[in-house]
Design a protein around this nucleic acid. Sequence first.
DNA 1: ATAACTAGTATACTTTTGTATAGTAACAAT
DNA 2: ATTGTTACTATACAAAAGTATACTAGTTAT
Lengths: 122, 122
Amino acid sequence: MSELREMLEKDKIKQCPKRYILALTDTLNVISGKWKLPIIASLLHGKNRFKDLQENIEKITPRMLSKELKELEVNSIVARKVYDQTPVLIEYTLTDSGKNLIGLLDAMLDWGLAHRKEVIES
Amino acid sequence: MSELREMLEKDKIKQCPKRYILALTDTLNVISGKWKLPIIASLLHGKNRFKDLQENIEKITPRMLSKELKELEVNSIVARKVYDQTPVLIEYTLTDSGKNLIGLLDAMLDWGLAHRKEVIES
DNA sequence: ATAACTAGTATACTTTTGTATAGTAACAAT
DNA sequence: ATTGTTACTATACAAAAGTATACTAGTTAT
């Protein structure tokens, strides 16, 4: 049984441990906002350069792309690597944690598809 | 293999179908913001009345609680039922879709815990 | 010298999200 | 008539998130 389900068993409602709350809010922060998922999805697709991302993600401004990439880097979701060529090549890649997000994306996709089905059927 | 992983196979990168994007953004909308997860978690715990929720969720104002409950109701995550007693009893419950969110919360929890471990270890 | 390429930054603004504080409505009990 | 109960709403404001538009810096090619 899942950790959460166990925690919620009727006859033994426990306080939600703080580390669970931290883990959940971490996760929410990583995927929240207008551009995080498009960026992560683009990186999963193999679009790794600033310009690739800008072209791949419709209507994102360089300011937002730069801001979000920095935040993802600070949170160890994305790694930034500079290749000293000309013109300079800068490559953004997903860290292991970043790649592991695909499991979460699957869960989101599954819930979203099931929910749409539920809502339409009723 | 997961739908997403399959879609991202290197030699056959497909366009992300629009219904996938819709499903993902639906899901994100349902869990985004400061109060959605606390409210959903409280409802899973069996706190079903406005006042219960207000007491259970630290520092939420009635305005926000009301606003969020309405939005969750519109999106078929929460059902509102009025019992004609005195004083009036109004009960908020999770719909099937709402209850199914627990699987997603588990995935979020797992990723969050694993990520913290990764970051600390490195 | 000018243009073009990559990878951004700067400034000002609008929109969305959330907060603070007070008040309402229906009814019952004292 | 006042107080208490539940379940909210109204108004004004502050903070966070996102947008628009223009500009910079280093390098190479013409």
